[in-house]
Structure formats: C-alpha cells, structure tokens
C-alpha cells in the first residue's frame, strides 16, 4: 500500500531564479554575484557579523581564519576596503562593513 498523496521528502524545490548560474567558477565552491573570492567573502562575512560598534579587530580576523596567512587576510582586507565594502574605524586594525542588509 502506497499513498500517492504524500510528496517525497527529498525534493527541495528551492529554486532561486537568476541566482544559481553565477556560482560555477571552477572549483571555487561559492562565489556570489558580488565578484569576491571565497577568502575575501569570508573576511567580509566575519566583519559583517561583528556586533561591536568599533568593528572587528584584525587580530580576531586572524584567529577565526586559521587557514589563511596574515598576508592573505591583509590582502583581502585591503581589497575590501578599496572596493568600499569595509572601512577602518578606531584604528587601522578595526574594520566595519558598509554593506547594510
């Protein structure tokens, strides 16, 4: 006996028109439409997620991104601030995001 009325549980019909085509850049798992690399995105997301008014400390960034070197974090931070996604606050080691959502 099988009930035909119940839809299979595995079908996630979560379609997001227009958003799905962007992500397929080689092996880089997720690269949203904003044109940032995965590393730059991670840095940006961490800065975004920081609730403190003075923003996220570079030290915290470093502690949360073990897999990245200080140089590559700096590079990402440089890039992001050049693009205007983040800006430094109380000193050059604190960053906040401009991307209000």
């Amino acid at each position: 006996t099988k009930s035909a009325s119940q839809p299979p549980a595995g079908t996630a019909s979560f379609s997001n028109p227009g958003m799905n085509e962007v992500g397929n850049f080689g092996g880089n798992s997720f690269m949203p439409a904003n044109g940032l690399t995965a590393a730059q995105n991670q840095v940006l997301n961490l800065i975004k997620a920081c609730p403190r008014p003075e923003g996220l400390n570079f030290h915290d960034l470093k502690n949360q991104l073990h897999h990245m070197t200080v140089a590559s974090i700096k590079q990402a931070v440089d890039f992001l601030s050049n693009e205007g996604h983040i800006y430094s606050t109380v000193d050059d080691d604190h960053f906040k995001s401009t991307d209000a959502e």
Partner: peptide
C-alpha cells in the same frame, strides 16, 4: 569619531562608484 565617519563616507562613496 570624525575619522570613523570619514572612513565610512569614503567607503560608501567607493562602493557607490563601483555600483554605478
């Protein structure tokens, strides 16, 4: 504080310039 606001304004300008 002024510095922060200036940085923020500058960053927003850069962002806006890119999004044009």
């Amino acid at each position: 504080l002024v510095r922060i606001q200036k940085n923020k304004a500058a960053a927003l300008l850069r962002l806006a310039a890119r999004n044009v």
